[in-house]
Computed example of a mutant assay.
Amino acid sequence: MNPARITGAARIGGIVGLPVTHSLSPVIHNAWLEAAGLDAAYLPFAPPDAAAFEALVAVGRAGLLSGLNVTAPFKEQAYALADSVSATARASGSANILSFRESRVLADSTDGEGLLWALARQAPGLSLTGAMVVMLGAGGAARAAVAALAGAGATVRIVNRTPARAEALARDLGGSVEVGDPATAFDGAALVVNALSVPPDLDPATLAPGTVVMDMTYRPVRTPFLKAAAAAGLLTVDGLAMLIGQAGPSFRAIFGQPAPDLDPRPLLLAHLEEPA
């Protein structure tokens, strides 16, 4: 491992959200910066409102920041403030990365890429081509994930407590995205993804054998939903894997080079005080 150094030429990146104190992104990125020996730092930013967030983006546009990861509640505003957006960000209607290059703001979304990375690592036998996927929730966390799953060839049924939100998301994304009836949505599902911030009102034991169950939440890593799924004999995928999966392309976008070959998962589990 190369020693990190911070000089007057250091590149500065970070994570912006409200709140942001819970974020594990600084743990991941600063470990990678140290491993790569880069003259750089990755910091948390918590602007109190939309005006302060816009001011932070102006700081980046002025060349004082290399890039930012963006989390709630600023993803949609980040998308709106960008000079150019990637096809992935356009599909999800939000951005979780802003890169600053020559006074321009570039927006991208890697949340969907992180989800696909997590599935490939923890459920390698799952093929999304032609698969039926049920997405629990229709908020910001679900949007990029649904776009990525549909782009990978799956049909996605959205199940949400407020049907109007599910209908709006299905209408925005179109194609193989539809609204599911809670009574029948799980029939034939190969994958069920929880994008809610709370445990869903679903007993995994009612799912068909072989269904993969994913929870996008990572505090705790083994959520009650995943524990119930494992107890029912189902394969599970956790939100920590998704976080790591989206961090790699974020690092490349912000610092201009691939993340080093250092698996941050053991470090993150130790930080969360959870067993490996």
Rank of each mutant, 00 (worst) to 15 (best):
103 S>Y: 05
103 S>K: 13
103 S>E: 11
103 S>Q: 11
104 R>V: 02
104 R>E: 15
104 R>K: 10
104 R>W: 01
104 R>H: 14
106 L>N: 00
106 L>R: 04
106 L>G: 00
107 A>I: 01
108 D>G: 15
109 S>C: 07
109 S>M: 07
110 T>S: 07
110 T>N: 10
110 T>H: 14
111 D>L: 02
111 D>E: 07
112 G>P: 01
113 E>V: 15
113 E>R: 05
113 E>D: 14
114 G>C: 09
114 G>S: 03
115 L>K: 02
115 L>H: 00
116 L>M: 07
116 L>G: 01
116 L>D: 05
117 W>I: 05
117 W>C: 08
118 A>V: 05
118 A>Q: 09
118 A>P: 01
119 L>F: 05
119 L>C: 01
119 L>I: 05
120 A>G: 00
120 A>T: 12
121 R>M: 14
121 R>H: 13
122 Q>K: 14
122 Q>F: 09
122 Q>I: 09
122 Q>M: 08
123 A>Q: 07
123 A>W: 08
124 P>M: 11
124 P>N: 12
124 P>E: 15
126 L>D: 11
126 L>I: 13
127 S>V: 10
127 S>I: 04
128 L>N: 01
128 L>W: 02
128 L>P: 04
128 L>E: 06
129 T>W: 09
129 T>D: 09
130 G>S: 13
130 G>I: 14
130 G>H: 11
130 G>P: 10
132 M>H: 13
132 M>P: 10
133 V>C: 07
135 M>N: 12
136 L>M: 15
136 L>N: 03
137 G>D: 11
137 G>Q: 05
137 G>R: 04
137 G>M: 06
138 A>I: 10
138 A>C: 09
139 G>S: 06
140 G>F: 09
141 A>M: 10
141 A>P: 11
142 A>P: 13
143 R>Q: 14
143 R>V: 12
143 R>H: 14
144 A>T: 11
145 A>I: 03
146 V>C: 09
146 V>M: 08
147 A>G: 09
147 A>T: 03
148 A>V: 01
149 L>M: 12
149 L>A: 03
150 A>G: 04
150 A>Y: 03
150 A>C: 09
152 A>W: 01
152 A>E: 04
152 A>D: 09
152 A>N: 06
153 G>C: 02
153 G>T: 11
153 G>E: 03
154 A>E: 07
154 A>P: 02
154 A>S: 15
155 T>D: 12
156 V>W: 02
156 V>C: 02
156 V>T: 03
157 R>V: 06
158 I>P: 00
158 I>Q: 06
158 I>M: 05
158 I>D: 06
159 V>Y: 10
159 V>Q: 01
160 N>S: 13
160 N>C: 12
160 N>W: 00
160 N>D: 11
